[in-house]
Write a protein that binds this DNA or RNA. Structure first.
Lengths: 199, 199
DNA sequence: GGCAGTTTGGACCGCACAGTCCAATCCATG
DNA sequence: CATGGATTGGACTGTGCGGTCCAAACTGCC
């Protein structure tokens, strides 16, 4: 694993992506190493060659991969929330993405399976959220310099996460639509956090 | 199971509560039937006597039990959101409850384990949310008759769920605090939904 | 007190599935 | 073309754990 030829790297990548697809479709609990082996045209020894610590190691790589995707799919809007039009486009993209995915949220399924106790899992998740939040906060500063950008970003992340969780739980996209829309509208109307009357 | 003497009912209850505690502490994936057996002073045959469909059946009962608790622990405030003081008290209760629980959210762990595909699981979850939402909506009507109560209730449920999810993911209570506080404050300020400028 | 149903004990089974092992093959480098 | 390391194939192992089974012990009822 320390020395890794191009061929090896390709195989490893193939495993991660194949496993990711399988897990997205069937859930991590219903995917065994043999399924992954079959789907990626690999052998048992390859799996353990590239992921010496076994399945948990592999799922970790898959989780990291999925976390990347979450942010990538919000681009280019997320990285450039400098106008209300961009905010709208971003919102629509997020909603469309989750509407397409519906109940299949690979990341939540994966983390539930792996357990947040594992520091490596926690690192992936908190890393993703902190990058996400930073980009949103930058957007808030661009359109509402008077707002408490961190607070608003926290609120937005919470609204999206809540919408996504409710989507998985109830197969209803409205929680995300309403939560995200209201939060943005709230920001647009005033400057919550900074001059707000609360606490 | 159709005929169930008082003694039998007590045993069944003991199993559910014992399993619930175990699962709260260790997560459903780390709790086997033997653990439950040991913790509840029962035998294998009792487990299958009271839950003929096996472990899934049992976890379902545990999930239903936990869902009840979620709502119960918000009382009496949730059922009587007729003044802003009650709203504040409710908010504080919710935050305190999750702050105490921290990352251990038995319901999310359980549903992740069981899979939302199962209609019985979905029924428990959607039932809980719809009762929850109905009580919130009633409260909205009491303090803001001009607002779109259903929309606001949806937003609030989303904010709480998001806060809870982020709490589990990052062990940070601020998402819940900020999300819930902002949503209530937003409601207090105006009448979102009804006269809002958005869609 | 005897009968039918419920409740309980615990040995036993089966298998899915993660993980191991060793031999075969590829490939870069000198 | 020789050599060492990376890569690959696939049979094999071990076991954790959900689930089955039957017999024993209660419990209520006529």
């Amino acid at each position: 694993m320390r020395a890794l030829t191009p061929k090896g790297a390709a195989t490893r990548q193939r495993i991660v992506e194949g496993a990711a697809k399988l897990i997205r479709d069937h859930g991590p609990a219903n995917v065994g190493l043999d399924d992954i082996r079959a789907a990626t045209a690999t052998s048992k020894s390859q799996l353990f060659h590239y992921f010496p610590d076994g399945k948990a190691d592999m799922l970790l790589a898959v989780a990291a991969h999925e976390a990347e995707l979450v942010l990538d799919e919000q681009q280019p809007y997320l990285g450039d929330l400098t106008s209300w039009a961009q905010w709208e486009a971003w919102r629509d993209r997020v909603i469309a993405r989750y509407a397409a995915q519906r109940r299949r949220c690979p990341l939540s399924a994966l983390t539930a399976q792996l357990g947040l106790a594992d520091p490596a899992v926690e690192g992936i998740i908190t890393g993703m959220y902190s990058r996400w939040q930073a980009q949103i906060a930058a957007g808030v500063r661009a359109v509402r310099p008077d707002a408490d950008a961190e607070r608003v970003a926290t609120q937005l992340i919470g609204a999206i996460t809540g919408g996504a969780t409710m989507l998985v739980a109830t197969d209803d996209i409205r929680y995300l639509e309403i939560g995200l829309t209201e939060a943005i509208e709230n920001l647009r109307r005033g400057a919550p956090g900074a001059g707000s009357s609360l606490r």
